[in-house]
Amino acid sequence: MQWNSLVALALVAPSHALIRFGCSQLTVDRIDPLVQPGQAPSTHLHQIIGGNSLNVSMYPDNHDPPALSTCTTCQASEDFSNYWTAALYFKARNGTYKRVPQKGNVGFEGQKGGMTVYYMQDSLGDYQQKSKVKAFQKGFRMLIGNPAVNNKHDADRYPQLTYTCLQDMNTRYPETKDFPAKPCPAGIMTNVRFPTCWNGVDLDSPDHISHMSYPINGTFEDQGPCPDSHPVRVPQILYEVIFETGSFNKAADWPADGSQPFVWSFNDQTGYGNHGDYVFGWKDDALQKIMDEECYVNCKTMKTQSIDAMNSCNVPNVVGEDIGDNDWIQAIPGQMHE
Rank of each mutant, 00 (worst) to 15 (best):
T72E: 05
Y97R: 06
S53F: 02
A135T: 09
K138Q: 08
L68R: 07
K91R: 15
G107P: 12
I144Q: 13
K103C: 06
T72H: 05
N105E: 09
Y118I: 12
K130A: 06
K91T: 07
G104F: 04
G50L: 05
G113Y: 03
N94A: 12
T85A: 09
L68T: 01
G139L: 10
S53Q: 02
K98A: 07
T43A: 15
G50R: 04
A76F: 03
Y89R: 01
K98F: 00
L143F: 12
Q102P: 01
R93H: 09
G107D: 10
N62Q: 12
F108V: 02
N94D: 15
Q47M: 07
I49Q: 04
P66T: 10
R141Q: 15
N94T: 13
T70A: 08
S81G: 06
A67S: 14
L68C: 05
S42Y: 02
H63R: 11
L54I: 04
S123R: 15
L88F: 11
G113E: 00
S77A: 02
G110D: 11
Q121C: 07
V100Y: 01
N82W: 05
S77Y: 02
Q111V: 09
S42G: 00
P101E: 01
Y119I: 04
Q128W: 04
Q75H: 12
Q137Y: 02
T96N: 13
Q102M: 11
Q75G: 12
G51Y: 05
H44S: 12
K91I: 03
K112I: 07
